[in-house]
Simulated assay, not measured.
Amino acid sequence: MSMIQTGVLDLDSTSPLEERSGNTSTFTRVTFPTPFPAGATVIVIPAVQTFNGSQTPGVRIANVTTDGFHIRFNEVYATAIAKSDGLHTTETVGWIATTA
């Protein structure tokens, strides 16, 4: 039987681009209202709900566990090639988490 939880948060990024795998020091920790069962495989799907900044807020998710996950923006902007600078204004992000 699947378990589903949802949530919403206001998120911004005042930190430079994060490129190192495993470094979540600039991420925001989200804790699930109710932990998923031990051993469950949890899938998190985020969606930006607002359009406050002129560039696209690339959403990164890390360290998904049965208790929660980490999230941050890496702002995407276009020049001759797509780039990212990490900085982005506050946006509302909704998320849904479910078991596989």
Rank of each mutant, 00 (worst) to 15 (best):
L9C: 03
F32A: 11
M1N: 13
T14N: 02
F73Y: 02
D67K: 13
I81T: 15
A100Y: 14
T6V: 07
L87T: 03
P33A: 12
Y77Q: 00
L9W: 07
T89Q: 00
I43D: 11
V59P: 04
H88A: 02
I96L: 04
T28K: 03
G94L: 10
A78Q: 14
T79A: 15
L11P: 03
I4K: 02
N74K: 08
T28G: 04
F69Y: 07
T6R: 13
P33D: 11
I43W: 13
T41W: 12
L17R: 01
S15M: 03
D12S: 04
V76C: 07
T34C: 12
T99E: 13
T14W: 06
N63Y: 08
L17S: 00
E18K: 05
S21P: 10
T31R: 15
G7V: 00
S15V: 00
P37V: 04
D10W: 09
T92W: 04
L11D: 07
H88T: 03
S84M: 01
I71P: 00
T79F: 12
T65D: 07
D12I: 04
P16E: 08
S25E: 11
T31Q: 15
S21E: 13
D85T: 08
A82T: 08
T31S: 15
G22L: 13
V42Q: 07
T24A: 09
N52R: 00
A62L: 10
P37E: 06
R29L: 01
L87V: 02
E91W: 01
T26I: 07
G39C: 05
D12Y: 06
F32R: 07
V93Y: 04
D12K: 03
G53D: 01
A38Q: 11
Q55P: 10
G94A: 14
S2C: 12
T89D: 00
I45W: 09
T34L: 14
V64A: 10
G58K: 01
Y77C: 03
T99A: 14
H70Y: 12
F32T: 15
G58L: 01
P57V: 15
D67S: 14
V76H: 03
R20K: 14
T90C: 00
V44S: 09
E91F: 01
V8K: 15
L11C: 02
S54N: 10
A97H: 09
T24Y: 09
I71L: 04
F36A: 06
T65E: 04
S84K: 01
F73C: 09
Q5N: 08
S84W: 05
M1L: 12
E18T: 08
D12R: 06
P37H: 08
G58E: 01
Y77A: 07
D85S: 06
R72D: 05
R72I: 06
L11V: 05
T90W: 01
P57T: 15
F69R: 06
P46C: 06
T50W: 02
S54T: 06
G68A: 11
S15F: 00
T92L: 06
E75M: 05
F69T: 03
G22E: 13
W95S: 00
I81M: 14
N74R: 09
N23F: 13
T65S: 12
P57N: 12
R20D: 12
F51K: 11
A80F: 14
